[in-house]
């Protein structure tokens, strides 16, 4: 199977400091791929580069064969990105927000309607969808934003810390939605997380990233076995210490 994401020697510098230092990765279609690393490791930068928000200093990356630098607008039609600190327009209702976003992806009313129904189902917000998003709790807002990300059926969903800062109930809901949605629609998901348990539960494969470099890639069980670790957390610490 051809990989849906290909990254080669990606470098991103901010004022001479390297946030990404030669990252290379391949992500296969339909898999949930986790990017794990400490704060400042380069996770968000990698996801922003793939989402076409920022350009790499050098290197190459493609999504579904489209160059993220040269074919940015084509890439944006294939992906859907959920930033770590995303928000919704506070003066629009949840429903209006989803309709606004869906309108960019679909041409006719029927498709938009179907996407909205999907978004409402994913969010699980029920009647609260008619309320302004400024009245939502953090968890509710995150559910709405995940619904926005997935309702447009992207080839690649990019989720930056999807459950960060959420309580157990909302985090549980989001994790289940991501897992079931990916399997249902064969959607490829690239996510970053600090939460090793979450990554073990969700991801088919993971990459450890530290100081802008990918230091290990494999399935959670494979990584645990390779590093004789009880869990991913222990494996990560062992790898980083060696690296």
């Amino acid at each position: 199977m051809a990989p849906i994401v290909v990254i080669r020697d990606l470098i991103k510098e901010y004022s001479g400091r390297r946030a990404l230092d030669g990252v290379s990765l391949e992500i296969n279609e339909g898999e949930i791929f986790g990017l794990i690393g400490p704060n400042g490791a380069g996770k968000t930068t990698a996801l922003r580069v793939l989402s076409t928000i920022i350009k790499p200093t050098s290197g190459y990356a493609e999504v579904c064969g489209k160059d993220i630098v040269k074919e940015g607008s084509a890439v944006r039609k294939l992906i859907s990105y959920l930033p770590e600190e995303a928000g919704a327009y506070p003066n629009l209702s949840g429903y209006e927000y989803l309709r606004f976003m869906a309108s960019f992806y679909y041409g006719n009313g029927g498709e938009i309607k179907a996407a909205l129904a999907e978004g409402e189902r994913i969010s699980g917000l029920g009647d609260r969808m008619r309320d302004k998003t400024s009245t939502y709790s953090k968890g509710m807002r995150r559910r709405l934003l995940l619904a926005r990300t997935l309702m447009v059926r992207p080839r690649l969903a990019i989720l930056d810390e999807p459950t960060s800062g959420l309580d157990v109930t909302h985090a549980f809901h989001l994790r289940n939605v991501i897992k079931s949605y990916s399997k249902e629609h064969d959607t490829t998901v690239l996510l970053s997380s600090h939460n090793m348990l979450e990554v073990e539960y969700l991801c088919d494969r993971v990459a450890f990233i530290n100081e802008g470099r990918i230091v290990e890639v494999g399935s959670p069980s494979g990584l645990r076995a390779r590093h004789e670790a009880a869990n991913l957390e222990e494996a990560f610490v062992k790898v980083v210490r060696v690296a």
């Binding site: 992906i79 959920l82 930033p83 600190e85 960019f104």
Partner: peptide
């Protein structure tokens, strides 16, 4: 409101 980052990744 942290909506700009999302806006920059939609097909527009």
């Amino acid at each position: 409101a942290k909506t700009l980052e999302t806006l920059l990744t939609i097909p527009v």
